[in-house]
Write a protein that binds this DNA or RNA. Structure first.
Lengths: 239, 239
DNA sequence: TAACAAAAGTGAGCACCGCTCTTGTTTTCT
DNA sequence: AGAAAACAAGAGCGGTGCTCACTTTTGTTA
């Protein structure tokens, strides 16, 4: 059953070719280098023909974004099988970003103008890595903090510049983390607010660091120290 | 002396007009919305005439990037005059990003393809905020750590998932921070490696968090909690 | 004041882009 | 075999950055 006619086969093949060429174009020229006309040219077909397979450039972009999310998540998962640690997660992300800088920019850089990825299509692959990090930090909190994961992995003990009466840590935290907590719950994950906050801290630091490296915002000269830098960062964050 | 001829005056005025329109276009349509032809149209002039005032679209982009860096740095400086704290710095950055999301994307998002801002033109304004943060954290380390700023503001004491023999904290840290240390020295700032690392941690977290909020990477529902979220984050980082 | 040179503005044109629409061809299904 | 669906072609619309030869304006200088 479900016999694939040659027609369907050809169609799938062409679609695969298009996404493949699209991926290569992004790798070579960033998101700006993605041109349906150029793809048509490479396919040896007139430009309008491509629109039989893809509704618009944005639709192709959505596909490539989803693919990129899946790729990095697969790699991170593989890395975590060797060593379940925050450091391993961060380093595998860094490694992927180094090999596919344009794809990294595609998913963690500035969103494409006048276009937002349909959440229905991209949330699941797009959150896999963050979910993995959450679970990593949740288990880390358990094994350390014992019965009270509240302060496990947290180090708000010694904070130099904090004013005493600020009162922003415990009360308001709850509501601010609401959307994230809800999002995790939708994915079937239910964990403590302290874990969520801690995860968020580490997450934004990782993304920020890799973005800084990839986008050259720290200046030049880091080529040989990227891994060391991220390692030091993760360590400074307490992992 | 230095008399400004009407000719020069007109030229400067037109240049100012161009950057002003350019800024507005970016605000409205992101970096993709910046069109020299549209600027010419708005100026009531033929498209090629704009090239008398600006060499290329990229050059205009450089100007707008430098401006944006200066603007946010000015705002952060003003905020720090009221309250010298990491939180105030982060919140003023967040506020600026909220008012000028496209400009934020311009300077902290994906760099424009096939174009890198001439460092000579952008480093100084582009590093002002980070320098301010460095000094903030340096003084915080002094007032707390006393004679030894090494562990001040640092909390690598309790790190759950860290393996003992990792050895990545002290030895490799030095070389990995080299480029940053050099960059700071060029700007006349000389501080401890611990301070640099701590600054980097906080910096990437702030940038990562604001990027996440601005680019919608955390999902929807944060509109009313942005400040609280950043406050919680800064607190979690120990400030 | 008249002549001149520099600066500013013009308009056509090149090569690209995304996308649409009409026409013709080919394949598949009934 | 004929109808229907899928595919490809080609022209065309409006947009982009940028160049080049040319004219007009402007300020200075002889």
């Amino acid at each position: 059953m479900t016999e694939t006619t040659p027609r369907q086969r050809a169609r799938l093949e062409t679609e695969a070719q298009i996404t493949q060429i699209g991926n290569r174009m992004i790798d070579e020229g960033g998101v700006a280098g993605l041109s349906l006309r150029a793809i048509a040219r490479e396919l040896g077909v007139v430009s309008s023909a491509v629109y039989r397979y893809v509704k618009s450039r944005d639709e192709l972009l959505t596909i490539l974004i989803r693919d990129a999310f899946t790729q990095i998540a697969d790699e991170v998962d593989a890395a975590l099988e060797d060593e379940r640690s925050v450091q391993a997660l961060a380093l595998s992300m860094l490694d992927w970003s180094r090999r596919f800088p344009s794809r990294w920019a595609l998913i963690y850089g500035t969103p494409v103008p006048d276009y937002e990825a349909p959440r229905q299509e991209t949330v699941v692959p797009g959150t896999r890595v963050m979910v993995a990090l959450t679970q990593l930090i949740a288990t880390a909190a358990e094994t350390v903090g014992g019965g009270d994961p509240r302060n496990a992995g947290s180090h708000s003990a010694s904070r130099p510049g904090a004013k005493a009466g600020s009162g922003s840590t415990d009360t308001t935290t709850v509501s601010a983390l609401g959307p994230l907590r809800d999002g995790l719950k939708e994915l079937g994950i239910d964990c403590d607010d302290a874990v969520i906050l801690r995860t968020l801290s580490v997450w934004v630091a990782i993304i920020g660091a890799i973005n800084g490296l990839r986008f050259g915002q720290f200046g030049p000269g880091f080529d040989d120290y990227e891994d060391d830098l991220v390692r030091a960062l993760i360590a400074d964050l307490g992992f």
